[in-house]
Structures are given as structure tokens and as C-alpha cells.
Computed example of a mutant assay.
Amino acid sequence: MTRMHWRPQGTVYGTLLNFRREWDLWAPRMTRDPHKAAPNAPILYVKSANTFSPAGQDLLLQDGVTEVDIGATLGLVIGADAQVAGAVLLCDWSVPHASYYRPPVKFRCRDGFLALPQQVTVGKVVDWAGLQINVRRNGEQVQTVDLRDLMRDLPTLLADVGEFMTLQAGDVLMVGTDCLSGGSRPRAKAGDRVEIFATGFTTVTTNVKGQA
């Protein structure tokens, strides 16, 4: 009997500039054109359904892409009455790019660019306030994402998003991905094996493949 892996049943939203390190790096530029001020609400984007990559599926680099940013994150899974029903680890892959105000769809919504876990971890938002998400590439630790470093912690993010939209049952709200000290993210290329893991969660493992 084939085991069914978890798949989002609604819309998946990502959050930008929600970690303090990246916010601080961008702060000097926030008053420049075109926005001329720091954002006062969460900056969201959508991961379309073509990006959903079931647990254990390889990531195939296509169309001249030779490397990708590793985006380890926590996704809050929305249940009935817009309440959080559980959470998942995800890898929000993206093609390296400079702008985080209006990230082009072609960099974030390529086929297979959201690595999914096998199952949802049931729990409450308070359970994950201090979660640390670890990233290994080819067995080497390359990043630790600490949710204590969020600009908007989990309850605040949910409340602020709720000010302008209603999350539906089956939706997933990703809390954001952190950068390294220099502002970039860890990257992967063809031949790499990436593992994202945290206490209490199913590990997300992806082999990155090049186009033949």
C-alpha cells in the first residue's frame, strides 16, 4: 500500500523580511525609492501549486539555473475557524536574486520549488516560539534558523496578517526564511543533498539534480 504524503490543501503564503538580521541589513535602504519608508505590515507572496514537491522528491534544476537558495522555514497550517491546526518544516527554494520587496514569480514559483514533509506536526503556536531549524548540506551544518529572531513572532504575524486577509482552512503561512551574516542564504547546486530538521518535526530531505 502506497503511503500518502502531506500536501497543502489551500494557498501557501510566504513572508519576507521577518528575521531581524535581514531587516537590519535592509533598514538603511527602506527609505529610498520607490517605497520611501519601512513596511508597516507583513510582506507576503504566494507559492503556487506547481511548486509543491512531495516528500522525498528530487529538485530538478532547469532553464539554466545552476544553484538555488535554501529557504528553511516553518509553515503554520490553518485549520477550522482560522486557527492553527499544526505546523510543518518546508524548504522554500528560490533562484538567487537581489530584490526582496517585490520578488519576481520566476525566481520563487518554479516547478518543485517548495519541498514538503511527510506529515503535519500537531501542536499549538506557543510550542514553536523558540524552535531552532537546522540545515545540513551534504552532511555539513550550514545554518540554524532561530524563531526567537523573528521580527514578528508567530502570534503577532498571524494577527497582523489577519488585519487585512482571512486565512482559510488548508492554507499555510510560512514565517519567513533567514539569511546568513552577509545577507545571502546557503545555496545548493546539482549533486547536493539538503536536510532540514528540528526537534519534533519530520525531516525534509531533498537531492538536487541537474538537467541531463
Rank of each mutant, 00 (worst) to 15 (best):
Thr73Asp: 06
Gly75Asp: 01
Leu76Ser: 00
Val77His: 00
Gly79Ser: 09
Ala80Glu: 15
Gln83Phe: 02
Ala85Gln: 06
Ala85Leu: 05
Ala85Glu: 12
Leu90Met: 09
Cys91Arg: 02
Asp92Tyr: 06
Trp93Val: 00
Trp93Gln: 03
Ser94Leu: 05
Ser94Asn: 07
Ser94Cys: 08
Pro96Thr: 09
Ala98Asn: 03
Ala98Thr: 13
Tyr101Thr: 11
Tyr101Met: 15
Arg102Val: 06
Arg102Ile: 08
Pro104Lys: 00
Val105Trp: 10
Lys106Val: 08
Phe107Met: 09
Cys109Asn: 14
Cys109Trp: 01
Phe113Met: 07
Ala115Val: 07
Pro117His: 10
Pro117Phe: 03
Pro117Cys: 06
Val120Ala: 04
Val120Met: 00
Val120Leu: 02
Thr121Gly: 04
Val122Lys: 04
Gly123Ala: 14
Gly123Met: 07
Lys124Trp: 00
Val126Glu: 13
Val126Cys: 05
Val126Thr: 12
Val135Asn: 06
Asn138Ile: 08
Gly139Tyr: 14
Gly139Ile: 14
Glu140Lys: 10
Gln141Phe: 11
Val142His: 07
Val142Asn: 08
Thr144Trp: 01
Arg148Val: 11
Leu150Tyr: 00
Leu154Pro: 02
Leu154Ala: 08
Pro155Cys: 13
Pro155Gly: 12
Asp160Val: 01
Phe164Leu: 11
